[in-house]
Design a protein around this nucleic acid. Structure first.
Length: 1044
RNA sequence: GGGUGAUUAGCUCAGUGGUAGAGCGCUUCGUUCACAUCGAAGAUGUCAGCAGUUCGAAUCUGUUAUCACCCA
């Protein structure tokens, strides 16, 4: 019976199903008693995700390590799961609602919408899991986790407690003062209308413009403006009544709070020295309400850049924000959540007057919330998009003559010089921030957000890596890690989304002991549940009662809205629509009054609390992945057993997003490191090194590749590419090569099957061997086993892959398999038995050692024979290079070298491939002769020798071979082309001479003998002797040839 | 601007002090029973440039150039 062909598609599905049904992936499967544990946490893919090459690569490495440990008897857990991916998922489901003409998110309301997402997850959330299975990932699927499991509204089957963990951590961090809320400048995504973190912003260089405008000085004041060159010579001196500023964002001028210059910039000293306070005019908006702003000094402006003067718009630029904070400059917010120019607030005239009073110093700087409420967008501009506002602002300023002009000379149609004066606008590339999900331009916006005070928890995360408790590979990753953590910024964790863990904070009115509490100044109460928050609230208000007890009522917007009309009808009030856009604090007031109207509580007793509508950044929950998936906050056996986890395999692109945050959060919460080792790999690119992207059309779909080449080939490619710190360029030709490798292995088994090895009973024992060939292959295997184990220990997947590839193909198939042919064909019964047993064993070893990388084809071959265990649970071998038999090793290597030399000479002499030729030897050394006698059959067969004869002198026209153990030659007088052979020998001699020169030169240098280690000197000497011997043989042959 | 890395055969990449390798591609030859998804033989390199350390440098140091990625 022949093995037939390997049908990857059919076999992979069948084998995977069998492994899974038999529970082969379960935590602890195949563990020895008292085994050490080994645990890998999958980097949870987005629940919306589909498998891309990065996943395929990343999960292959995890699977290799997992399978390797499992076979070695470790108590192994590969923990799978998915991430709820707030923005991405909300986006997907919203789009789907639109596509299927269903009510939109806002029409559905929060609760109904999140139900839709859960429904969506039930339907399509398993896509990536099924794709990982196709890859062969041996995760314990029975433990599949989800970062939103157990959240309110989670359906049946999603009852995990990840949500509890997230909420508990928030509450604890809040109580420890590690989380705070504040009005800060954040990256605002106008498409999703949510804040995002620094890391979710991509800065991309795009073509932009730099406009130059004049800000006229107040009251027509003037100063002498002087420009000098490098040598201090005056190049320009003029009297100016304005200060010139440059900007890429003219529309934000409306919110300017000041103009800043560097104190070292002598051009402007006159404007501020001796305590002088100069005001200048923002040259835009209705002329009668022009705002005047102060000229201040700050280190931020660069005197060598442009005019050296910078407008300060604290609410719309991160640098300006810092300057404004330092200088007490008001920050005026100009835009709404869609990044359109604000249309709320009082008429411009009033707002501008109020702002002017602040700039003049007539009033002290008001509270930030008062400033935030002011709308300094002129009435004409209100409601415009930021892009339109920019155009209008530029046009208005230019029309009024406040643009800096330049004079250019150009040729007109007739070739005459025409001089033209036009606004000075530089075209230059600018870095613009884009949302990594929405792809729209991110707007810095002043909003109230929650932050993790990262700086407070960064210490232990830094220490753990510094003191080696956690290792990051490659080492360069540690440097990057340190650099980021040492310059850590607060982490904005609130998102204005609905899909996610809602922040466990409820707001109530500010306590007032002399009247009604103040809903317009909300106070935060943090607790895992409303009851706990209410408990906090009770303590806060305690003592403020005037003889009565507070009752806390939660305002739930959706319910209140649903109730709204009926409520008003019942009361006989006019039925007005629910105020959709009313802020929650105002709604709370409304609700509180409603409660009183319903006579549910006396007015003073009811305190309305409402929950913060925001959800947490997805990475806040993924930061808890290791403990959350193991059952924390409950003290589970899995936590005890598997924490800290062993290896974290992930892309270097999420070192900050995820790895650093897991370190910070877990150390802050549990004081324990999340994992021992982090293995970082790069992005998978195409064959030319380009990022794979849909727009360039170079995306390779791993599922297509699996379809075409099989999962094993794709996996082997991944392993072979995975050098530490290496680049990952994926070439389909290479995958095809590893597919061929699988076929090669299959055929080697097929050969064995033909020779009857599958009829032998299974044995894991290293066979006893007498024959040098069999002794030799045992030694070669032991070397490979050691190399593979060392390589995997060092996370050098490519070394493991290439060692296995070379052994299987070049040693096992090319030589061992070939050499067994003469034995099987004409050996003694004893030799045949021994060789069958050795072949069977050696093939098994190939299957075992290759299994972590190529699980499917190896399992399929393994099961061709009756076995007590599946290959996935086979025992990983432990034999060592003690199996190397020096004599057999030397003998086989000599045989191989002899065959190679003869083949090479034959090919170059154009001896027909099929022809058998005679061979002669002079001075045949006894050891070599004995080796020859023992291996005569195979030497003759593979070198195609007709005979080997001892001679005293070579016949004329003999081609000399450079082999040790005697002087070998092929008497080929009749076929030899003398000229060609002379050329061949001279070329070889030329190479030798070069090598000899190097060797002699080194040995002649006395310092070499002095400084180099003895073994290196010995090696060099031995090498020289060998080369000299070779040279003399060839030289002699050459002389004789020339005599012809 | 700051950081991290890269530059080795035609291509894609290994190679962290002892004189350079793999796969693919290329050339020549080969259908006798493991395999044409194959076999045999072969060609191909100032290891980016310069300077240094060393008996010895692709490898360590400095520097220049070019490229990539990350952060501003």
């Amino acid at each position: 019976m022949a093995l037939g062909k390997f049908n990857a598609k059919e076999a992979e599905a069948r084998i995977y199903a069998d492994w899974e049904a038999a529970g082969c992936f379960k935590a602890g499967a195949n563990a020895r008693t008292d085994a050490a544990t080994y645990c890998v946490m999958i980097p949870p893919p987005n629940v919306t995700g589909v498998l891309h090459m990065g996943h395929a690569f990343n999960n292959t490495l995890q699977d290799i390590l997992t399978r390797w440990h499992r076979m070695r008897g470790f108590d192994t857990l590969w923990q799978p799961g998915t991430d709820h991916a707030g923005i991405a998922t909300q986006m997907v489901v919203e789009r789907r609602l639109a596509e299927t003409q269903q009510p939109s998110r806002t029409e559905l309301g929060r609760e109904a919408f999140t139900q839709k997402i859960w429904e969506w997850k039930a339907e399509s959330g398993g896509t990536i899991r099924d794709q990982l299975k196709r890859l062969g990932a041996s995760c314990d699927w029975s433990r599949e986790a989800f970062t939103m499991s157990g959240a309110p509204g989670a359906p049946e089957g999603e009852e995990g407690n990840f949500h509890d963990a997230v909420i508990k951590v928030f509450v604890e961090m809040f109580n420890q003062g590690l989380i705070y809320r504040g009005k800060r400048l954040v990256n605002w995504d106008p498409h999703f209308e949510t804040a995002i973190s620094d890391l979710e912003v991509e800065n991309i260089e795009v073509p932009g413009h730099m406009w130059h405008f004049k800000y006229p000085l107040a009251g027509g004041e003037t100063y002498t403006y002087v420009e000098k060159d490098e040598d201090g010579n005056v190049t320009l001196e003029e009297e100016r009544d304005y200060i010139s500023i440059a900007t890429t964002r003219p529309e934000t001028m409306l919110g300017d709070g000041a103009v800043a210059v560097n104190p070292s910039d002598e051009r402007y000293t006159a404007l501020w020295e001796n305590g002088k306070r100069t005001l200048c005019e923002i040259p835009v908006g209705p002329k009668e309400h022009r705002r005047l702003i102060p000229i201040i000094t700050d280190e931020y402006p660069d005197p060598t850049f442009g005019s050296g003067a910078v407008k300060i718009t604290g609410a719309h630029d991160f640098n300006d924000y810092q300057v404004a904070k330092r200088g007490g400059i008001p920050m005026y917010n100009l835009m709404d959540s869609k990044a359109n120019m604000r249309a709320d607030g009082k008429p411009y005239a009033e707002e501008a007057a109020a702002a002017q009073a602040i700039a003049n110093g007539d009033v002290s700087l008001p509270d930030e919330s008062v400033i935030a409420a002011m709308n300094l967008v002129p009435d004409d501009y209100r409601g415009m998009s930021r892009e339109n506002a920019r155009k209008v602002v530029v046009a208005d300023i230019t029309a009024e003559g406040n643009a800096v002009m330049e004079t250019v000379t150009a040729k007109d149609e007739d070739g005459n010089d025409v001089t033209e004066t036009r606004p000075y606008v530089e075209n230059k590339p600018i870095m613009q921030p884009f949302g990594d999900r929405s792809r729209v331009v991110i707007e810095p916006l002043l909003t109230d957000q929650w932050f993790v005070d990262s700086a407070k928890i960064v210490g232990p995360a830094l220490d753990a890596v510094k003191n080696g408790d956690v290792k990051i590979l490659p080492e360069s990753g540690e440097k990057v890690y340190f650099h980021w953590l040492e310059n850590i910024e607060p982490w904005c964790i609130s998102r204005q989304l609905w899909w996610g863990h809602q922040i466990p904070v409820w707001y109530g009115p500010e306590r007032n002991d002399n009247g009604p509490h103040d809903y317009k100044s909300p106070v935060a109460f943090c607790g895992a549940t409303f009851q706990q928050a209410a408990q906090q609230a009770a303590e806060y208000y305690a003592g403020s009662e005037q003889g009565y007890e507070h009752t806390f009522v939660e305002l739930k917007r959706d319910e209140y809205k649903a109730d709204w009309e009926a409520r008003r009808e019942n009361k006989g009030w006019p039925v007005t629509p629910f105020p959709e856009n009313m802020a929650l604090d105002d709604l709370a007031i409304e609700f509180a009054e409603d409660l009183v109207d319903q006579n549910r509580f006396p007015k003073e007793e009811a305190v309305v609390l409402y929950r913060d509508p925001d959800v947490l950044d997805t990475w806040f929950s993924s930061g808890l992945w290791p403990i959350g998936t193991l059952g924390w906050p409950e003290d589970t056996p899995e936590l005890q057993k598997y924490l800290p986890t062993s290896d974290l395999i992930t892309g270097q692109d999420i070192l900050f997003f995820w790895v650093a945050r897991m370190m910070m959060m877990q150390l802050a919460i549990t004081d324990k490191i999340p994992f021992d080792t982090v293995y970082l790999h790069g992005l998978v690119r195409d064959a030319k090194g380009k990022k794979m992207s849909k727009s360039t059309g170079n995306v390779m779909d791993p599922l297509d590749l699996i379809e075409e080449y099989g999962a094993d080939a794709l996996r082997f490619s991944s392993a072979a590419m995975a050098s530490l710190g290496g680049t990952l360029k994926l070439d389909t030709q290479r995958i095809a090569g590893y597919r061929n490798f699988g076929t090669k292995l299959w055929n080697a088994a097929s050969y064995g099957e033909m020779r009857g090895i599958f009829d032998l009973p299974h044995s894991a024992e290293v066979p006893d061997t007498k024959h040098p060939l069999n002794r030799w292959i045992k030694g070669e295997l032991s070397k490979t086993r050691e190399t593979v184990d060392q390589a995997l220990t060092d996370y050098r997947f490519n070394d493991a892959a290439s060692a296995l590839y070379a052994f299987t193909w070049n040693t096992f198939c090319d030589w061992y398999l070939e050499f067994t042919k003469p034995i099987f064909d004409e050996g003694t019964a004893e030799e045949i038995e021994e060789t069958k047993a050795t072949y069977a064993w050696a093939l098994d070893q190939c299957l075992i050692l290759l299994h972590p990388i190529m699980p499917f084809i190896t399992e399929e071959l393994w099961q061709q024979k009756q076995r007590s265990k599946r290959l996935i649970h086979a025992d990983w071998p432990t034999y060592t290079t003690d199996l190397v038999d020096a004599e057999a090793d030397a003998e086989l290597n000599w045989v191989i070298r002899l065959i190679e030399a003869i083949r090479s000479a034959r090919a170059q002499m154009h001896v027909p491939a099929g022809a058998y030729v005679p061979c002669v030897v002079k001075g045949f050394e006894p050891r070599a002769k004995a080796a020859y006698e023992r291996n005569k059959a195979l030497i003759h067969r593979f070198a195609r020798l007709e005979s080997l004869t001892d001679v005293d002198d070579f016949p004329k026209g003999t081609v000399a071979l450079a082999v040790s153990g005697g002087t070998f030659g092929l008497p080929l007088a009749d076929v030899i082309d003398v000229g060609e052979e002379i050329a061949r020998l001279e070329k070889t001699l030329g190479k030798l001479a070069k090598e000899l020169g190097g060797l002699r030169g080194r040995l002649k240098n006395p310092k070499f003998a002095e400084s180099a280690p003895a073994e290196v000197v010995e090696e060099t000497k031995a090498n020289l002797r060998l080369r000299e011997e070779e040279e003399s043989k060839l030289q002699e042959a050459l002389t004789r040839l020339k005599e012809l």
